[in-house]
Computed example of a mutant assay.
Amino acid sequence: MITNSVTKQIIAMGGGGFSMEPENPLLDRYILGLCKKKRPKICFIPTASGDSDKYIVKFYSAFVQVLCQPSHLSLFNPFTSDFRSFVLEQDIIYVGGGNTKNLIALWKEWGLDHVLREAWESGVILSGLSAGSICWFEEGLTDSIPGNMTVLQCLGFLKGSNCPHYDGEPRRKPAYHQLLSEGLISSGYAVDDGVALHFVGEQLEKVVSSRPQPKAYCLERVDKTVKETILEPIYLGNN
């Protein structure tokens, strides 16, 4: 039973973590630190990568070195038909990058979207980078279709749109601005690599970063123009 004491949390990274910054664990440690247990259960969901074996190995290589209980959930080689029980036993869900369009389609086909919403509403921490960031919003700017930057309808746990890799991929910023100015995507957040948005409930609580320079941005459409506001992160290296 869900009570009023449950804290719903989502950490949406523009890029970073063990797969992009293997020598810089600050964002991953931040996510683990949100769970007050000594050995939190953290489950990696690599759907967007097609359950890449290399990606899964990278996850275990990174997280076996810290005090936690790592596992992963595969939709291509599932070990159980009872996803719900497995997911609800976790403390943290960590969603990897890749093709967001495939991720959304497969999650809906398997009913994992409903399971993850239930987990979030039960206090399981949801996190991820790139596709694993976009997926939680109503819409996302994705390169899932080769050669194009397109708008993708996502899960809608969080309001608005999301654009990861804002500084890391040159096409992202102009595409996001153009789509927003034309009213083809809703207002939302752009996030540089190495930066994470920390939502509590549906509200942005904090912005953190693994490096001093990267930023996050709030983008709004105002009279057919785009207003971009910098959201200065808290650099985790100072903690």
Rank of each mutant, 00 (worst) to 15 (best):
L26M: 03
S74L: 06
R117S: 09
S144E: 02
H198P: 08
R84T: 01
R172D: 11
D192K: 03
E109T: 14
L141W: 01
G111N: 05
P146Y: 08
E202C: 04
E220S: 11
Y60H: 12
Y94Q: 12
A105H: 13
L219I: 09
Y30A: 11
G98L: 06
V57R: 14
H72D: 03
K58S: 13
V208C: 04
L34A: 11
I2N: 03
V95A: 13
S187Q: 15
V208N: 07
L155M: 08
T225V: 10
N148T: 15
S181I: 10
P22M: 07
G156D: 01
G111P: 05
L26W: 00
V222L: 05
T229K: 05
L129W: 14
Y30H: 11
E138P: 02
G183K: 13
V115W: 07
V200C: 03
I145H: 11
T3K: 00
I125C: 01
T100A: 09
V66N: 08
F157E: 02
I11V: 10
E118V: 00
T100K: 06
F157D: 02
I10F: 02
A62Q: 05
I92M: 10
Q213A: 14
I93N: 10
V195S: 05
S210D: 06
L75D: 03
K101M: 12
Y30Q: 10
D51R: 04
S61Y: 12
F199K: 04
L231D: 04
E232G: 09
E220L: 14
F86Y: 12
F63S: 05
S122P: 00
E118M: 00
Q203E: 14
V226W: 10
G16W: 11
S144L: 03
G98K: 02
E205T: 10
P22Q: 03
P170K: 04
